[in-house]
Amino acid sequence: MKSILLIISLAAAYCASGTAVSAEELVVYSSRKQHLVKPVFDAYEKKTGIKILSVTDKAPALVERLKAEGKRSRADIYMTVDAGNLWNAAEKGLLKPIKSETLSSNIPDHLRDPNGNWFGLTIRARTIVYAPERVKVAELKDYRSLGLPKWKKRLCLRTAKKVYNQSLVAMLISDYGEKEAESIVTSWVANLATKVFPNDNAVIKAVAAGQCDVGIVNSYYFGRLKKKDPGLKVALFFPKQSTGGVHVNISGAGIVSTSKNVAKATKFLEWMSGDDAQKILAELNHEYPVKNGVPTSDLVKSWGVLEENKNNLRQAGELQGAAIKLMDRVGYR
């Protein structure tokens, strides 16, 4: 009995030891993977002495957490992938609009919220992957043309439940209108070589193994696999600006509306958009820096020039619901 009491009191002491946040700290609620952002946080701490505490979770869960914590939340920054998630947090009034010369000049217009609620920090390209042994580059044009009859039983796609595909279809709606977008996605579904995959890696591997000839993936997944296996028999294709350009999305961040450290948090975001941080961010995950003039990694450079679709990413959020319903209607699972 005594030992049980001892265990309980030790446990209670352990439970009560919360993490106090001191003045020289910033709290980041992040849906980004620790190993992809930790090195940048560490670099900031080394430079300024400000420690970055973070808690990771899925973006929608973090939004609910912020809502429930309200004015007593200790979060200063909300950081996530996909403009849709950032848009949702802003819609719910959880982010504070910021005016900063540095952020405006470092980050192109289409990669940040027009009202200053959130800012893109890296660019991720969702583009076409193909098997060079069976497909000539000249046969590829844009996302829409993957619905042509010549790709029948040759296309592989990831599940429609992934937000990356929802954003892609949202941007198709914004480019072509809902009706045309629906016929494009219908033609994709008709061309599928096999059931949809749970992630991008599986799509790339299927193309490499000959299960299909073309697919749509985020470029950094391709980068990771290519780095591991340089002999992988797949290649990336970037649609040209004249045919709509490459669909891009962002990882980004905004300042939490209840933050008591707005000035300090703004300084941190400005630093994140600057040369040093941009270089680390781009290197870490084979993504593209948002700031002009910052070099990409050598591997990314070898893929050629990225011609982005310049529609404002806010629409990815606004049209996400419509995109999901569209995909449900045409049976894209």
């Binding site: 946040v21 709290v27 990771t56």
Partner: peptide
């Protein structure tokens, strides 16, 4: 995983949290 993720303190992770982070990126 999900409960641990949502209710845990800052910068405090467990094995299952780590698994979540890694598999959600494939």
């Amino acid at each position: 995983m999900p409960l641990t993720l949502m209710t845990r303190p800052f910068s405090w992770d467990t094995l299952s949290v780590k698994i979540f982070e890694l598999i959600s990126e494939g």
